[in-house]
Design a protein around this nucleic acid. Structure first.
Lengths: 347, 347
DNA sequence: CTGAAAGCGCTTACAG
DNA sequence: CTGAAAGCGCTTACAG
């Protein structure tokens, strides 16, 4: 390129980066030639020299457990990733989807990013340790439960949201409220469980907890139903409301309950701690906490950019508050129940 | 690192890449030291030297029109991207989501990838031209309709799939079958339209076509319904079946029809050319062509890797055949209709 | 205003 | 088996 325009590499670089003064003439010539021969500065060479690639890495930790990017009925992560990609671009970055970079075969490119967003880290998450060792700035969405302050984070509002859902189930008519959740040791599971136990304690009730590995997916709904309704020895502890932390547990549970002749919401109230499309459109529609993944992702990307570029604006460091979407699965009043037979909810 | 282990950079490099012979002793020492100080070869430097970053870029062209990564009710792209990310990792690559790299503000990192997958390119797509100029190998999912052979591609089976849906609508009882589609000039829209016109011609029928810009989203359903059912001057051309190419058009149309008292499927049959979650779970469920984005993405990634690495295995160069998921919106027989009032379809 | 030199951290011939 | 040298394509002091 330099020789094509008859100038030095220095001048080409300056023409493209506009640092020093380059004469109008030279500037034009360089740009004309660049246009003509389709020259663009090599991003990798620039990256090496400048120690910046303009790439944000995203590690969706729960998916490393699931060993799938496509868990049926989980749209949280795809909504999060999509929004993060868009936000990154608006800040002049690309978004790179990265799987567990501590795994032996992980592509080296996993560590070529300027900054890394890790969602829902596990206790003492090795990914955070690795990033720290490599001096790659990192932030988490939801804290590492074993070391909450180890890196900056967008904090979730799990405690408050858990209370809100449980209170809602109670006011919708639930008297014996169970909790179904996963076994990953991340802040979401651990905080929700603690909040639930606390909530039960305040009411003098014994907690009823159903735990299923995340890998079990919708099938967990069947397990929950079996444990809750099939065991004769537990007939007194039969819940009339179950808070499923994940949308897929909720969907699975609704199906499993129905197959037992248990009606939702008449006999059993069901709510989910994360909203998914099938909760909005299924039958019945399922009340769910909309965690607003798009806005959360936007905040995470902004914090990532700030972390890397070192600006000092005041940014939110907590996720937006969840919004409880009340739907048929917790609505026993006749009006709503009747509407179930007619059209889609206006939700 | 080299000095920490008391060897030359050459030896470190060889120890990590295992090319030449390095004595067992030296090898062990290098790895021990690397472990201790957390050394990993710099991916960017290696990338510059080797002209390979192990990164696959993905440009989802339709999203550049929509100006959103998150069109409500389009899960095709997220399923595609998720599967592509996973496949890329299995081949030792990371997946980078890139928006239109021809746009002025595009991050330079957009062009740092080894190879680029472009889905649904437009006619004479400038992205393909740019990639060609930059000598970045590219492939498309669905051809550039103006220059089908310009780069390798995973070809869609749009023509056959269009016939299959139209035949299905006919056998389900449709006598006047309309087509609703978008205005993006990509192979999907253009091929479907051509196939539809041909199908009508073979039956001596006049085509009935509803075109709406992709940006209009679900609202397009209302426009389609207005055009089809509100205009008195067209009462003879009123369709009793409409094939909506996109899942969101179908959803919007079902809602718009219902709000006019037109029952689906009794008065109007509706099918979609791309399956989305709300088609599976809405009321009524909507018959749709499952384009199998996960498998398509997998093939695209494999072709991308081959293109970049130059292996010569025989790979499929067409998308997997779509599978028609027949649901309530095209099922008039009493059994199925009755089941609508009870439980979720077993689909 | 412009260019020659140095160097970002690697890898690969090449020489020993 | 090991290391010194060159070079991937840039950018940034520095000198003119």
């Amino acid at each position: 390129m330099a020789k094509a325009a008859g100038v030095s590499p220095t001048t080409v670089s300056q023409a493209f980066n506009g640092r020093r003064t380059v004469s109008r003439q030279t500037l034009e010539r360089v740009h004309d030639v660049a246009e003509r021969i389709g020259y663009r500065p090599n991003a990798v060479a620039r990256g090496l020299r400048e120690s910046r690639m303009n790439v944000i890495a995203l590690v969706l930790r729960p998916l490393d457990t699931l060993e799938s990017f496509l868990p049926e009925g989980v749209d949280f992560f795809m909504r999060f990733a999509g929004s993060a990609a868009l936000s990154a671009m608006e800040h002049g970055y690309s978004l790179m989807l990265v799987s567990d970079p501590t795994k032996p075969g992980a592509p080296v490119s996993s560590l070529a990013a300027d900054v890394c967003i890790v969602t829902d880290p596990f206790e003492n998450d090795p990914v955070l340790t690795l990033l720290k060792n490599q001096h790659i700035p990192a932030l988490t969405v939801g804290v590492d439960p074993a070391r909450p302050g180890v890196v900056p984070s967008i904090d979730s509002n799990t405690r408050a949201e858990t209370f809100e859902v449980l209170d809602h189930l109670e006011s919708a008519g639930g008297t014996t409220v169970g909790l179904a959740l996963g076994t990953d040791r991340n802040a979401w599971n651990l905080t929700a469980k603690r909040a639930y136990v606390e909530w039960c304690g305040a009411r003098g009730r014994e907690p009823i907890i159903y735990e299923n590995p995340e890998t079990r997916g919708e099938a967990a709904g069947e397990r929950i139903a079996a444990e809750a309704f099939d065991r004769v020895d537990r007939v007194e502890r039969r819940p009339d409301a179950i808070y499923c932390l994940t949308g897929r547990h909720a969907s699975g549970l609704v199906a499993a309950a129905r197959s037992r002749g248990i009606r939702v919401p008449e006999d059993l109230l069901v709510a989910a701690g994360s909203d998914a499309l099938q909760n909005r459109t299924g039958r019945p529609t399922v009340t769910a906490m909309d965690l607003r993944p798009e806005e959360t992702a936007r905040r995470a990307v902004e914090l990532a950019v700030q972390l890397f570029e070192g600006s000092d604006a005041e940014l939110p460091t907590s996720a937006p508050g969840g919004i409880l979407r009340v739907r048929e699965s917790t609505s026993r009043d006749p009006v709503r129940s009747a509407s179930r037979r007619r059209g889609p909810s206006s939700d």
